[in-house]
Design a protein around this nucleic acid. Structure first.
Lengths: 218, 218
DNA sequence: GATTTATGTTAGATTTGTCTAAGTTATAAT
DNA sequence: ATTATAACTTAGACAAATCTAACATAAATC
């Protein structure tokens, strides 16, 4: 179908344009660690294949076709991450790199089997939604922890902008999805929070950290 | 390390030269479905990398380094096949194609985990030995079923020159590794055999089929 | 509004892995 | 032993994906 390389572009564009619906060529080049002319020529190629809307000097958007293709790759990525955690005993901080490779496998039966063995999961180990077979994906509307107030009690639902380091940071503090967290205090000048959970733990979380934690109010 | 393409050449050369210790460029081109000049230029490249011994108009041999690299890819392939069968419920006829892709993953922890989850298996689902981490592999010296005589009782130990079709053929007849088989009769003119197993089954196996079944005498 | 800076584009080179066409060497057949 | 066939090599072309250098446009700043 599409090359490994094209798939990586589609995924990058999808992720980078998640909020605004469009990306600059520059952002893509930073994300994929490629030079701008490389991105430029790939955009022309993807435009010919009707995967992106591309006009000179304008931001890049995925077409409907492009979005679907990207979603299906992300589906494979997230199913794989879930399988690695649930069935192979990996930590949530170990799975990204492996899934980056497995997501490109061309084998519908392989991913169908993973899906079935996992019981058709709706979210991945980081709380991100897994697109369905048609490429549809729905983000449940969680709040950022950073937007909560002192006194709120919330449940940790997802981690965004995950890096191995941040996930290890959460591991050390015993912070995992589903955990009930009580916000004790919000520092005025830097928006850091004092939170408690698991009956005994009390921790300070910086604003950056709170921006990356999605929660649902209880 | 080495490219996906180079890995496929190494594996092909390893498999094709298993018996004689050397291969012709022509055999490689047939195996990989590539034209001869393509193979020729790759041989020069692999020779520069000290992975093969190559001299004009002479058969191709893997160097020790080349053998080790090839064995480690085959190790990943066979571990993967075992995992797909034992842990994911695939049939032995379904796993080759998937393992062909997974064998190229660059992730030592992934294959170490597979190995551990399987309990460090020594053979794959088709009875082929799995090389160890240093690339060493030992074929237990099985006999071909075709070399056995009427009256012999044997245990099915491995299937060689496997194709999906042949494995499905065995599935239909309930022939699986470990099975005790009694040779009832050997037809003189075509070397086909009448065998019985599982108390009730009696089947005729052609010479070609018997050549592909490795057994140990009981 | 003019100028500087950041972003985007074009042109052309490079690497990898493939091909076809043409020529060379070895092997098989008469 | 000569010839015919099969196997191998060389030369040169091509596509994919990358790069650098030079140029063009848009955005930001003064």
């Amino acid at each position: 179908m599409h090359s490994y390389t094209e798939e990586n572009y589609l995924k990058a564009i999808f992720n980078l344009s998640a909020e605004k619906g469009e990306v600059s060529a520059n952002e893509i080049s930073v994300q994929l660690k490629l030079k701008m002319p490389t991105v430029n020529s790939m955009m022309k190629k993807l435009a010919v294949k009707k995967l992106v809307h591309y006009e000179s000097y304008k931001p890049i958007k995925l077409t409907e076709k492009g979005k679907k293709e990207a979603s299906l790759i992300i589906r494979k990525h997230r199913l794989t991450e879930m399988f690695l955690v649930q069935k192979m005993g990996f930590g949530w901080e170990e799975v990204h790199e492996i899934a980056e490779q497995i997501e490109h496998l061309q084998s519908p039966i392989f991913f169908e089997r993973i899906d079935a063995l996992l019981g058709y999961p709706k979210i991945d180990p980081h709380g991100s939604p897994i697109p369905d077979k048609t490429g549809k994906m729905e983000w449940i509307k969680y709040e950022k922890l950073s937007s909560c107030k002192a006194g709120d009690t919330v449940r940790l639902a997802a981690v965004i902008h995950t890096t191995d380091e941040f996930l290890k940071f959460l591991n050390i503090r015993g912070l995992q999805l589903g955990l009930k967290i009580k916000i004790k205090f919000v520092e005025k000048f830097d928006s850091s929070m004092i939170v408690s959970y698991n009956k005994s733990n009390t921790e300070m979380l910086s604003e950056t950290e709170c921006e990356r934690l999605l929660v649902e109010k209880i």
